[in-house]
Design a protein around this nucleic acid. Structure first.
Ligand SMILES: [Mn+2]
Ligand SMILES: [Mn+2]
Ligand SMILES: [Zn+2]
Ligand SMILES: [Zn+2]
Lengths: 144, 144
DNA sequence: ACGATATTGATAATAATTATCATAATAAAT
DNA sequence: ATTTATTATGATAATTATTATCAATATCGT
């Protein structure tokens, strides 16, 4: 059974909040997890539509919100303002390096940068809650 | 004469691109420079409207774009997706620390973080063009 | 002053997301 | 299995921020 853990997380959240299961929610979760990339609501909508042609756009957005609340999904936006969604369950925190030519994503993480961020926040009297770090450049493949 | 340098920069850009001067552009620049904060298009629009009641929204957006091209203005967006504009002429590059309670902005800069970013990009075969770093937390004043 | 060109303001269009609401599905109680 | 209360769904309208369109106006070199 694929994604058993994730299914359980969603079920737990649904039970917890007195919500109800639905075929749509199951399929959206499945498609979301099967797709190993940072996808937009539209991409998810179109893929789900192949399995459930009657699916509505609103259900995609609603379910994405639900997945975020359940800790299965993370919202992220890149430059232009298009929101993308990525797997969050069992994924460590990371930031992104993005190619401005081909759109390629690389996931990055630097404990050193994270420490420096904390230091800066503290120096200014802030208690840090979260941060956003995105690096934009041209990847090796796009440079020749 | 206040903002003489900035006026010259805009004039130069206008001459350079064979554009034309206008009362509106002068006043928008003035109001933008007088307002010492990170403002939204709407805030700028409302302030300019007090001096030039006939001003159109489109002119605000168009002129902001012009100021950006001229190097006088920098566009930035914070979390929610509202675009803000800040002074760019004679301002060093910096990132932002934002209070999630009161919205206070602190401008930050860390050469160490900048260096580490370069290092990460290089390690992944990227040539870095720019980055976005925003830290979110609660400021001292908001914590008691 | 003239004429070519750029600018303006009103308004329509766009795009992404959220709100509304009648209908359908779910799940618990009978 | 039926009933019942509640939530979910899909169609569509509304919203928000920004950009495009276009006729009327302003600018600037001659
Ligand atoms: Mn990622
Ligand atoms: Mn700033
Ligand atoms: Zn690339
Ligand atoms: Zn604060």
């Amino acid at each position: 059974m694929p994604f058993e853990k994730e299914r359980e997380v969603l079920s737990g959240h649904i039970r917890n909040k007195n919500l109800k299961h639905s075929e749509q929610r199951q399929i959206i979760l499945e498609v979301f997890l099967e797709t190993e990339k940072h996808l937009t609501a539209e991409e998810l909508y179109l893929t789900v539509k192949k399995k459930v042609p009657s699916i509505g756009y609103a259900t995609i957005y609603r379910t994405l919100k639900l997945l975020i609340e359940a800790g299965l999904c993370r919202e992220m936006q890149v430059e232009n303002g298009v929101t993308r969604y990525e797997h969050h369950y069992n994924h460590e925190h990371h930031d992104h390096l993005v190619c401005t030519k081909c759109g390629k994503f690389v996931e990055i993480f630097s404990p050193d940068i994270e420490k420096l961020q904390e230091k800066i926040a503290k120096k200014n009297g802030f208690v840090l809650e979260r941060h956003r770090l995105e690096l934009y450049g041209v990847c090796g493949a796009c440079r020749r």
